[in-house]
Each structure stands twice: as structure tokens, then as C-alpha cells.
Design a protein around this nucleic acid. Structure first.
Lengths: 352, 352
DNA sequence: AGCCGGTTTGAATGCGGATGCAATATTGCC
DNA sequence: GGCAATATTGCATCCGCATTCAAACCGGCT
């Protein structure tokens, strides 16, 4: 009643102090606690109270202050997501999916992006100051850093990272298995002279893939495999292929790149710079199954990470741990999807 | 000295309540205010005080609580960044750069990722509840939503988006100009029969590009240009090219795709599905200058958005507005970098 | 010794909302 | 109608830190 006198509140004044629950309470003629309860899940409030409060709240443009709420409830409803530059460049779906999935649970993502995987130290301090409820990291942290975070009461989920001697929650793709399959198939199809293009040295993922490949090669009796370093970019893959040619003096039977981007670079180099047919003259395989790997001009033979299932698992796992911090750790390992492209000669379409 | 004996405080107890400034004060034998001052920038504290407090803080593993600090200072030191799925898929550098640049100013990014550009409404509520200091959006909002946010005292910077009749801060690439250049060059080189592949209908960027292309074609007297809809993916580009062939019954002289991914799809279609040479049989141009556009197999003729300068501008602009909310709006428009790839026949290397 | 300007320090208060507890209102039931 | 059981509501307090104001302190100088 008498609404015209009070309307001034909401829309017009841009600069005025934001309305608080006290303002709403006063306008609605109730207590601040009542306002608080109306804006909560399982709180008791009569329909009439609810209506009066909501009316006042709308009139004032009131919104509960998540910061204040976080202070009193000890739950910020934010999780930190730590990625390196690489992560978002090569798996852009990762961040978006993670954010959307957390969002469905009412959880926001506070993003931390590292130039290199090693830069975590300063970042860590900020992560902890924000009292996030949890942390997902797709960048490497030291066991010491990991313990620092968990000791601060923040559950951590490692994404495609693991520790040798520390119990931690993790979600990862089985890179070793994937590389072993690729090598096995190449060998089976008659390839004998291999070359490997690795990723950045500080990349845990690259290390794991390269190790997997080398182990399998060793088992198959293939020795003296030249290893060239790249940085995950296609340009570095192209340069790496040139290095290999220089090293060997001739084309290898197969090049195993630590990711698809470099595999694409290798294919470009083979065709453009050395006039080699792919896979006729040389077979080239990658890893990841990213979008560009499926462009018709490349159609890279690779192993695809099931990013969708992995982000889903990471989110579920972190939410579980937030709800019950004392449950024991779990590791979830996903096999990659084997993609027989046309950048490598394989024996036949039958399974192996 | 005696390091083993004292380590107990911080590292071991995982579950204990986090240390507060009062805990530190008590241990150091000083007041809480003193602790607060030691952890601030321009606060006065003697060296001795500083040392005592820091010693106690380290012993307890104390870290100032950013949430509580935000409540009292009315500054959360967080900005919201709103993106659509597309944004991160096609410009993964955008988010990383933005985050890193804000980080240099002590500002964290709270990420909101939309499935589609239209889904802002619910999100908005959350953005405002978190009392972010500012907002950068690479997704479209309605003028009404924009005003809601600014009325709540949150400065907004639009990224590659604009409003017809609302004064707003924005950073964008001049898509119109870029498309006009591409069309002009194609026409100059003798292309007459054009086809256009647009992006998703809810993409403001795609609309602007298509409009720019059509305007220039109109000026050049080219009419009846078939327009096919894509969704920014390379697969949709490939399908779109087939549609064009069906429509026309023959190959156009040039296909103008609203982004590089679709241009790549078109190139695949032309070569693989129709045996056409690119650019011999058909010229294909894109937009964005993304990484894959430079793969040797495509080498797309395109206009590159200067993402680095644009994110820098967006960050600087938002920080200015946060520091001084009353300064008037500014629009920064960047020209794209013109990239003469080899996917289109252009007249000659000279400038135009 | 006494006084002054300047620097440190501490006590008290508030930011905005959640919650335990007690007071009150409502309902059900005999 | 009266009383117990239940649902609502308000009061007071607390979350952790920044900040104002006044008190304490310090060195220099007359």
C-alpha cells in the first residue's frame, strides 16, 4: 500500500549503497533474521512473510551478499581451478565443461592461469586466501605444495597429474596405455625405425607419454630411438621433424609425437618440406584427439582423451570430498579412445 | 635453530580451525589491529612488530582471509568474466591472457561459462551476489541486463559486443572493416560469384561480419549471394559448402566464411568432396586468424583479431573504471591484421 | 626536566548475513 | 475450552578483518 512513495529505491539510484538484509527488513517491517531465512533453502517462513520480504527485496533490488554469507557459513561456494597456458590452448573444452558442471551444483570457479606449470608458488598463496572450498589443478604441484593445500583444509583433485608417494585424489587419462597401443600397432604394421617428439620438459603429461612409448619400443626390441624436444605447438612439431631428418639422414618409418598439434606440424614438414607422403613415406601419430586432428587434410591417428567424462569425474570427486573431507582418496583412470586416422599405416581395420 | 621442535604448529593439524588474526595476535602478544596492519600495504608498523607478527603468523600458517577482507573493504578483488562456449573454443588465449593480466593487478577472475549466449539471465544473479568489482563479458547481454549490472555499481566492459543506443565501455575488433577488405580483395582479383557461410544466429560477431560482407558486395554490385548457416565448427563449414554446391549447382568463385574453422571445413569439402582445387577452383576466406588457420595444409586467407592487445585494453579499461566509476565510457576498436594466406586468389602482394 | 610533533599501538566498532535460543503464534486434539 | 506440540519470528551473537580515534611512545630541542 502506498507504493508510490517508496518506489524510489531500486532502479534509479546507481551509486547508493547496495541494499542489505537490514534495509529489506526495515521496509518489510520484519527482522533481519526473517529476511535471511526467506533467502535460504530449508528455513522456515510463512507464506505471508515470504511475500512481504520478497516484495521489499524486489523494490530495493536486494541480493544476498555471497561474500558475507561465505564468511559466516565458512563456505565460499567457490572452487579454484588451476591451469597452465597449455591446458586451455589444447583442451579448451576442459575449462568450459568444468565451469558449467560446477555451476550446476551452485559452485563458482575462481580461475588461476599459469604461464608455465612451475609458477604455482605465488598463486598458491592467493588460492588459499580466498578460502575456496576445493581445488582442481591441471598443473603440476610439488608434494609439498599439495600438502600445504590439503592441510589448509582444501580438498584437491589432480587432473592428469599424479604423485609417486602421496595419496591424492586424481582423474587422469592412461597415457601409457595409449602410447603402448600406438607403438604396438605401428610395429605390427612393419614400422621399425621410430622417432619421438616430446612436449615441454615441465609437462608431466608429455613425460608420461614418452616413457610409455619408449617402454613399449624397448619390449619390442627397438633401440636407439631419436628423441627431439618440442613445446606442444605445431610449429615446434614442424621444426622437430626437420631435426629428425637431420639426425637420421633419412626419414624414419614412424614419428610418434606427444600431442596432436606437433603431429600436425610433423605432417606439414613431411609433405611440404621433404616431399614425403603421409603415411606412404612416413607414418605419424599424435595424442589427444583434439579438433584439428580430425581435419581432412590431417586425419591424425591418435588416442583421444575422454575430456567430457574426465571433467565430470573431477567435479563429482571434488564435490564428494567437499561434502565429506575425511573419505579416503580415489584415483580414476580413463582409457583413451583409439582413433585410426589416416596419418599412419596400420595393419588392418580388425581390432588388436 | 631447533627446527624440528617447532614445526608442529602449522603443518600437521589438518582439521583444526584456520588461524585468524586474533590467533596470531595472541601468540605474538600484540593486538589484532597490529596483525592486520602488518598484512597491509601502507600501514604503519615498526620493524620489531613486523617481525614478531610474521614469526607468529608463519608458525600458525596464518593467511589473511580474502573473504572477510572483501566484506569490510567493500572490494572483493574479483572480477567476473562471462564467456560463451564458443569464445573459449575458438580463442582459448582470451581467457588465459585476461586472467594473467588481471592477476598482475592482484585481481582474480570468477569465471562464468554459458552454453549459449542467451543464457545470461540466471548467471547474472550469481555474478551480482558475489560482489565482483567489475565484469568483462564476451557474451551478449541485453541493454536491460547491462543496466541492471551497472546500477548495482559493477562496471562492465563489453568484448566484441556493442549496444545500439546505450553508452557502454567496449573493446572490439572491427569485423566490418575486415570483411570489407576481404571482399574487396576478392572482387579485385576477379571473383564475382560469392557465397557466404555465417555463424550461429545468436552470435553478434557473426552477424556483424556477415553484414559487413554483404554491404561491401552490394557496393560492388554483387547481388543474390547465397547465405548458408553454420555453427562455427569446421564440420558445419564442410556441410555448408555442400549446401552451397547444391544451391548453385556449380562452384562459386569465392566462399566467405564467418570464421576460420568453417573456412577450413569448406576447404576440406572443396578438396575432398568435390575435387576442387583451393584456391584454383574456389577461393575461401575466413576470419579470426586462429592457430589452425596457419597449418600448411590450409594457410587460410583471413583477418586476425589482435587478441593480445584487445585483452590488454579490456583489462586496463576495467581497472580504470573500478578505480574511478564516474569516468565516461570509451570504445576501443582494433583493426584486424590482414593475412594473405594461400586459400584465396588475390591480385598481387602489393598493398591495397 | 619539560614540551612538541610525529609515529606506533590498541580498543572499539562495523561490514552483511546465518543461526541458536527464547518468545510468540498457530494448530491439533481431547 | 484448554493444553501440548509444532511452526514462526525476533534477539543477540559471531564470522575475520579494516579502520577510526585516542592513548602511548619516542626522539629532539629549549
Amino acid at each position: 500500500m502506498n507504493k508510490s512513495a517508496k518506489t524510489a529505491g531500486s532502479s534509479e539510484a546507481g551509486q547508493r549503497r547496495r541494499a542489505t538484509s537490514y534495509d529489506v527488513a526495515e521496509l518489510a517491517g520484519v527482522s533481519q533474521s526473517a529476511v535471511s531465512r526467506v533467502f535460504q533453502q530449508g528455513a522456515s517462513a510463512s507464506k505471508e512473510m515470504r511475500d512481504r520480504v520478497m516484495a521489499a527485496a524486489n523494490k530495493l533490488g536486494y541480493r544476498p551478499n555471497a561474500i558475507a554469507r561465505g564468511l559466516i557459513t565458512q563456505r565460499s561456494n567457490m572452487v579454484a581451478v588451476v591451469i597452465s597456458q597449455q591446458t586451455n590452448l589444447y583442451y579448451p573444452e576442459f575449462l568450459v565443461q568444468l565451469t558449467q558442471r560446477f555451476s550446476e551444483h551452485g559452485i563458482r570457479v575462481l580461475l588461476f592461469a599459469l604461464e608455465h606449470e612451475g609458477d604455482i608458488e605465488q598463486m598458491l598463496e592467493h588460492v588459499l586466501q580466498y578460502r575456496v572450498d576445493g581445488l582442481v589443478t591441471a598443473a603440476m604441484l610439488t608434494p609439498h605444495q599439495f600438502r600445504t593445500i590439503e592441510n589448509a583444509g582444501v580438498p584437491v583433485v589432480l587432473y592428469n597429474r599424479t604423485f609417486p608417494d602421496t595419496v591424492a585424489n586424481s582423474v587422469r587419462c592412461d597415457h601409457t596405455e595409449g602410447e603402448r597401443w600406438l607403438i604396438g600397432k605401428l610395429h605390427e604394421a612393419g614400422h621399425r625405425r621410430f622417432a619421438i617428439v616430446t612436449g615441454p620438459e615441465d609437462s608431466a603429461v608429455s613425460t608420461e607419454r614418452t616413457r610409455g612409448a619408449l617402454e613399449r619400443l624397448e619390449e619390442l626390441g627397438v633401440r636407439e630411438v631419436p628423441i627431439v624436444h618440442g613445446d606442444y605447438s605445431s610449429a615446434s612439431g614442424r621444426a622437430a621433424f626437420a631435426d629428425i631428418m637431420d639426425n637420421l639422414g633419412h626419414a624414419p618409418d614412424a614419428v610418434v609425437a606427444a600431442n596432436d598439434a606437433m603431429a600436425i606440424g610433423c605432417i606439414d614438414a613431411a609433405r611440404e618440406d621433404y616431399g614425403l607422403d603421409v603415411p606412404g613415406g612416413v607414418s605419424i601419430v599424435g595424442f589427444d584427439g583434439v579438433g584439428p586432428a580430425r581435419f581432412a587434410a590431417y586425419d591424425v591417428t591418435t588416442v583421444r582423451q575422454p575430456v567430457g567424462r574426465m571433467t565430470e569425474a573431477a567435479v563429482a570427486m571434488l564435490i564428494d570430498r567437499i561434502g565429506n573431507p575425511s573419505i579416503s582418496a580415489e584415483q580414476r583412470v580413463f582409457s583413451g579412445e583409439r582413433i585410426r586416422g589416416s596419418s599412419a599405416r596400420f595393419k588392418e581395420p580388425g581390432d588388436g
